[in-house]
């Protein structure tokens, strides 16, 4: 007889918070937990659809239970039971504080300065954290046309900290983007037609110090230095620095590397698998628990 969710809830604190071993988890699980670790308990988080949403839901159930989750369709502090497939999914609105619309989320919350962490996806990123979700090649005759900004440019510019999740390939990690949807720490000043630090272009606005704080890819975790340039912080287990450099379109700073991205713990995996995405919508498959964990779950 399968356990009820209430019975599973009681097991959480019995599951050891030790790091799982290689082979006991899959890459999307490691990435989702890496995202979760970006969230602080007093954050107001504005997240996009997909893995960012899975990661912040996991954070909300693990390390940041009081973090406030904002979804752009109008949800303020949704307490989700079933993972949403869209930011407008009624599942995101469950037990919310208030429901409004885009004027609320982008105006009252974001432009007003309440949002402390934005979590977004991107098709390509430049070395200063500028993101492209619009097009590759010539803007008017693109090789690839993507969906375009959505909330990316607003959230990525006006949240105090912004983290991105991006698939790492040489053509997606670039010196300069073909099209900058969301500016990073350096951006083009269309008035003077110069490439300048965001702090200068945005000087005088309330958002001059808002910008990228981290990037999670399928290969590693990245930060930004005091000049606003991206550097490698950790490689995911099994990924070498060389492989990461091969999959980067510019000369990446790897001198500050701290080692490997930590494996998720059994407790984190248990919450992610049993409570965040038990329906297997975002996670492609469920790996078996090792015998010691199985015996606790029963």
């Amino acid at each position: 007889m399968a356990k009820t969710m209430e019975q599973l809830m009681e097991l959480i604190d019995k599951i050891p918070n030790e790091k799982a071993k290689a082979g006991e988890f899959i890459l999307p699980e490691l990435m989702a937990i890496a995202i979760a670790h970006e969230v602080l308990n007093d954050d107001i988080v504005f997240a996009g659809t997909g893995l960012p949403m899975v990661g912040i839901m996991a954070a909300n159930m693990l390390n940041a239970p009081n973090a406030v989750l904002i979804y752009e369709s109008g949800v303020c502090d949704g307490k989700t039971m079933h993972v949403p497939m869209s930011v407008a999914d009624q599942r995101a609105a469950n037990l919310a504080s208030t429901l409004g619309g885009l004027v609320d989320t982008f105006g009252y919350y974001l432009q007003q300065g309440f949002v402390t962490l934005g979590f977004l996806g991107g098709a390509a990123i430049d070395k200063y954290g500028g993101v492209n979700v619009t097009s590759i090649g010539d803007y008017y005759a693109p090789a690839h046309r993507f969906t375009g900004s959505g909330g990316n440019s607003d959230i990525g510019s006006m949240s105090k900290r912004v983290a991105y999740i991006i698939l790492q390939e040489k053509r997606r990690f670039l010196e300069r983007n073909d099209y900058t949807t969301t500016p990073g720490w350096w951006c083009w000043d269309f008035k003077t037609r110069e490439w300048k630090p965001k702090k200068e272009v945005w000087k005088g606005t309330p958002y001059a110090d808002c910008g990228p704080c981290g990037v999670v890819t399928n290969m590693g975790v990245y930060r930004f230095d005091e000049k606003g340039i991206i550097y490698l912080e950790t490689c995911h287990p099994g990924i070498s620095v060389e492989k990461i450099k091969e999959n980067c379109g510019f000369d990446l700073n790897v001198s500050k590397i701290k080692g490997e991205t930590p494996n998720p713990t059994y407790k984190e995996l248990f919450v992610l698998r049993e409570f965040v995405d038990p329906e297997l919508i975002f996670l492609p498959a469920k790996t078996e628990y090792p015998a010691a964990i199985k015996s606790i779950i029963g």
């Binding site: 969710m5 209430e6 039971m81 609105a93 469950n94 037990l95 919450v271 995405d277 038990p278």
Partner: peptide, 24 residues
């Protein structure tokens, strides 16, 4: 809830839940 907990969205059916884990 205002949504369906009967439909299949992924590979498994939606679990029956009384309360979100974060709130519990």
């Amino acid at each position: 809830t205002g949504y369906s907990t009967k439909m299949m969205r992924g590979k498994n059916p939606a679990p029956r839940m009384k309360m979100p884990l974060s709130v519990a």
